[in-house]
Design a protein around this nucleic acid. Structure first.
Lengths: 205, 205, 205, 205
DNA sequence: AATGAATGAGTTTTCATTCAT
DNA sequence: AATGAATGAAAACTCATTCAT
């Protein structure tokens, strides 16, 4: 279907070159549709990015909410969160790159979506932290740890094209086994350590 | 001096809008120089980004090498590394945003600089990890932990404009005290934890 | 139709000022179309010149092939060739000027078209010469006589603007009667004379 | 000396690309002088072309006047004329290309020089024709035969770069022996033939 | 649902020239 | 005699979008 072809083409191109560097003509060509179809389906090029950004946040939201389950122990939640993100990223790496790389914060529609999306994600992250006995209402703490988690876990998928150029690693299942394992340990131990230091004091500002 | 004014203006604008979204006209206007001066000094808009990207990597390289000192204990190194990055980021946040947000990997000159720069940074990160008794030659491990550190520590400075929109936090000295403290603990404990698990096994691929 | 209007305008302007000296803005204005239509129809300014150059060679090819007929005596062929070129030139003098004046051999696409076009023309000229019992395979001889004929016969149409400035001649039908008559005689006698000298010897290198 | 280096560089570049396609920056680079030196010595880029065009006409004037000598028989004059032009062209082919290819008749200074130069050349050509008993005052006849001679004889040197691409001929001394021989015969016989036809009638038009 | 011609403002880059040194 | 920074206009080309079909 044309609309989906346009969406896919746009994600792929935005991921490679960034939002502003990609022209609608290029998207239309890649999607093998007429240029006018983009305006027709998405209103404008910005409309396309809005939809991409929204879909990204939905996926991350899913990844977190599904991972943070009342009954599971904290470590298990972290493990699941990372697994979810890795699965998503491997399935649709371009969506991550397209969104995290696209900064057009000068376009207010996009900035709004990003701000709202990030608020929700960080709030969800708070639920995860509360499993470590950390205060989920501490905005300062969340403002530090939230982006750290989001970008830390996703970092590999942002720089993957660069790593492919220089590292000659086969990014296969076994690689992402190690990936999940290492980050799970690091974050569990790390957050645990932070909780141990902070737990006694509460907020820190 | 004209050249430096252009550089500063470009960093600031690229940080806000991304490389492709900024026009040379805009840069020239911001820098209060004639538009032709950009070609004159930097050859092209891409040439400008090349210099920005290079300078960024130099600064991060300094931040790491200075932090990882033979004589200091690992925790101290992590603390110093974070402090260095925070200092640099607070002093020149735009440079971080301009570089980390600018993906134009379709521009080979930039991709080359990024690839080379990241290789060097990751190698230096290996020296830090070796202080935790982790194998600094394990490329798979480094390929995971390197970007995690780089983006994790810098994440806040990438999303800062968004956070300013939604969080109403005063990003002052005391904020960055907490910032450094939390990340230091998290990374020290986290990496320590990883080392404890891996140390016995050696490489993991 | 827009495309043809652009073509005509470009030929006229290239003839007057030369390829490089004419801007697309000027062409668009002369053709009374939007500037973008040039890229739209011809890809680029160079694309326009490519089409002009091709069309020129087609016309000259027609002029020669039609003139050199198996059954006609050599003198008649020369007369017809000159008449054809004169007719064409009077009808579309600008096309000749635009092509023969445009040297951009630094633009490889144009150089290719010119090289190919000239090869074909010179080969056809060989057929004419064979009617004078001259060897049509003698490349050295052809390389001398070919351009001589092409530029000799067309010369008047190249310098016509200059002659109009200084000579105050009415370039009417009767003028071109004389023109054809004189050149026909000159070339018939001239080539005949060459044939008389060379015929006995064969090739001359 | 700087002035001469600029002149040489300009001739060479104009020959290759045409007047308008060459920038002063390029000329300065080729001549290894500072850009401002061009304005300094020649006033402007157009000033440079004026000097080139003038020098060209001087050389052609020399070539003709020296060839057309009272005492020599007509054939000898034609032979000498061709020899002179060939010698000049082989020595400084670029000057011919630079001048004959540069059409900027929209630049009045150049058009003036060309018009004046051509008038003189054509008048001199008249002296040659009078040796064949042709009327040297017949402007119509001269307007036809003059450019024919100028471009016919020079044609090879205009298209030489193209011929080099396709013909694989060694343009050596022996080649130009043939060249002179063929054109001498052709023109002597040709003009002679014309004279035979016209001689009885006088002027034609 | 789809086309493609058309628009006009936009892009980056290069131009010839000037001027203070 | 020579430099090189600086200028402002102009270059070719591409942009996202619209509209009649």
């Amino acid at each position: 279907m044309s609309k989906e072809k346009i969406f896919k083409a746009a994600v792929s191109l935005f991921a490679k070159k960034g939002f502003a560097a990609v022209g609608v003509r290029e998207i239309a060509m890649e999607a093998e549709v007429n240029i006018s179809m983009i305006s027709y389906y998405f209103g404008s090029k910005t409309g396309l990015l809005e939809e991409i950004t929204s879909r990204f946040h939905e996926r991350y939201y899913q990844a977190i909410t599904e991972a943070v389950d009342e009954s599971k122990p904290p470590e298990e939640c972290v493990r699941l969160l990372i697994r979810n993100i890795v699965d998503f990223a491997r399935e649709d790496n371009a969506l991550i790159q397209a969104t995290l790389n696209a900064i057009p914060l000068d376009i207010s529609e996009i900035a709004d979506i990003k701000a709202k999306g990030m608020s929700i994600l960080v709030k969800e992250a708070g639920r995860l932290l509360s499993k470590f006995n950390l205060d989920p209402e501490d905005v300062v703490f969340l403002s530090i740890i939230g982006p750290f988690l989001l970008f830390g876990i996703s970092a590999h998928f942002i720089v993957k094209p660069i790593q492919k150029r220089v590292l000659n690693i086969d990014f296969n299942d076994s690689y992402y086994e190690s990936y999940s394992e290492i980050l799970t340990t690091l974050l569990t131990e790390g957050i645990g350590g932070v909780a141990a230091t902070r737990g006694k004091k509460g907020k820190g500002d």
